[in-house]
Design a protein around this nucleic acid. Structure first.
Lengths: 205, 205, 205, 205
DNA sequence: GATGAATGAGGATTCATTCAT
DNA sequence: CATGAATGAATCCTCATTCAT
């Protein structure tokens, strides 16, 4: 699974992997609390219970830590992909996805971390690439659902299923951002959000 | 001491206001190019052609400059408010607004600056407040349009006109963010966006 | 005289120039005592009685300080140039120069600083250029003396007066290096040195 | 514990000696390319294909590596000592030596490494001692030649044969330093150099 | 209002070395 | 002998801000 493994399960390697995780987790917490730029490498190391110098044995630098976190984000999307890959009728899948993803975004940590990463992505191409890739996995899976729904006549014949899917994601994430900034809980918005999206996409009989 | 300080429109005051603008414009350019945290106060001063110390005669500090910029953003919204306050039928106003705002967001500067500000807003309450206020002016004006449209039967009877308005804004801004990160021009998305929103909001006959 | 002067003799500027000198002098002492690489910027600042940050208001960085020192070295050569530019007979000038320069090189500070600079020059082109330039001023002046001496029949008709001059300098400086490393005072070598050079250059009757 | 550690020429010992050489060669290359202080122990280990920790099984530390290199320099002088120990007439031996040593110094590696070592020697007594010792072997052998030449009437009766010998070496090495810094090939200087030295030392008939 | 020298804490990163495995 | 994770002091430099002029 991991790329640079030679003796797959040695104790040494396990310990090393554990350290990496400690550091990554500490970094996530720091970035959430204080933001990427406000967080010092020392903060991360201290929080991870690792010496400052040792952090650099595990990561090339602060930037690298953020990249790795962005890569981990990919895993978080797995459950939603599973939902989207179900064979159930498109409207049902769509609703289920909206609720699941909205629920995920109801946790401010998830939203803030994404904002932090996307904010860095503006000026750091490697992070932008990861960010766009992660998004693509979601939107492409959603696109398939939309396409299926349109064919089955369950969904409106949208002009471009991929872009429609992206718009759905954007409504969800955009709402989540706002809920964080305006301190309105996501739960209060969820209903309108679902209504808004479904009204746009469901076929009219 | 000098008398001209007190006359409201004196030459002194004009010169001062000019300096402030120079600084603010320089700051905007710096923030766009390198980001808020990557920009040093020195960068701003140098770009504005102002001495470092003098910047502090005009602003309390770096934070203050960002706040002022966030306040200036308010003005940028004026034209869209004018569109929204028109008395034309809601669907027409809605379309016009969508196009106008999408057109504004097609300029990456506008999007990046907003992202930069919102990113700071997460941890700085005063900026968050300004950010939310600006948004509110837009959404509240839009809300009126929606409400009017619903009453006139032109728009679907959405469960919550304010939240519907917010969702419209979020679709627009969310798409703009994505277009910046994925380097897809806004123009390619605009059609789907309009279709998506209108399909959700227009009344079905 | 100084290049970036606008109001030539303002008190501000004088104070600034003083600070620069304080820093340069401190740096010279540090480089002598501990070597360029062993010296930290903090050491220099502390020794100069200047805050660390302020050092960077006066110099672009540690490297810049060394460059400036290398440039100051040029001034140290002035007296020797004056000796060389005298109109006295070449052998007399030559002897006077040898003694004067040997006397200068008898102070280990002068030798060590030159060694420190030349050592950096190997990998830093800008310093190499300065170093070579400084050398050139000396060798070119000496070349004139040699040329004059040859024409007058006082000196041997050396194949290449410039290279002969360089060799004279090298004997002097090389001996100085050795005297530092072997802890043999320059005074013990001086006689042989003069004999060696003069035997090579004086015309044989 | 293992027995082969004690047999002088065992395979184990040979492998170990090989490792040492790998490291020393790698260190030489690093020191040449980047200089002693700019070279990290990691650089040396990486270049030698040895683990960081293992380097410390072979050397006490970075300083120790340099010391060992300085000791190896001694071997490089062997051929020149052989030249100097010949029984041929002093002027012939002297010429041969000058050419051989100049040829050796024509390779910048040799010069730079010596400069690097001598530069460290200024503040590190153990290296200074080695450096001076190496020099002494050369100058003492040369002294014998000079003494012989003087006695035979081939060379001028210099006041101090040892110091004269040192001066010869200094002319050679000094020229080599300059050729490196000024990027003038040694070959262009060689003629003048030989002329300069021989004119000083050869007896006048 | 205007200047830029002054501050010193804090920025990320590299260092030579040690040591458990 | 071999490994590379661990250490934390030290590296150079930048930061936002202040203040005397």
């Amino acid at each position: 699974m991991s790329e640079d493994t030679k003796k797959p399960g040695s104790a040494r390697e396990k310990a090393t992997a554990k350290r990496r995780n400690q550091i990554l987790e500490a970094a996530v917490m720091c970035f959430l609390e204080r933001g990427y730029h406000q967080t010092g490498v020392r903060d991360i190391a201290a929080r991870a219970g690792v010496s400052l110098g040792n952090l650099y044995n595990h990561f090339r630098g602060k930037h690298d830590v953020l990249v790795e976190i962005a890569m981990l984000e990919r895993r978080e999307l797995e459950p939603f992909l599973k939902v989207l890959n179900s064979n159930a009728p498109a409207p049902k899948v769509l609703k289920k996805f909206i609720r699941a993803y909205a629920n995920y975004l109801a946790a401010p940590e998830n939203v803030i971390l994404t904002l932090e990463i996307s904010s860095e992505a503006v000026r750091q191409q490697d992070i932008a690439r990861l960010f766009v890739e992660n998004r693509a996995r979601l939107t492409e899976a959603l696109e398939e659902v939309v396409r299926r729904g349109v064919e089955a006549g369950d969904l409106r014949a949208v002009p471009d299923p991929l872009q429609a899917s992206q718009l759905v994601i954007e409504v969800l994430e955009g709402s989540a951002y706002r809920s964080v900034l305006s301190e309105t809980p996501m739960s209060k918005i969820a209903g309108s959000m679902e209504d808004f999206i479904l009204s746009s996409l469901l076929a009219r009989r």
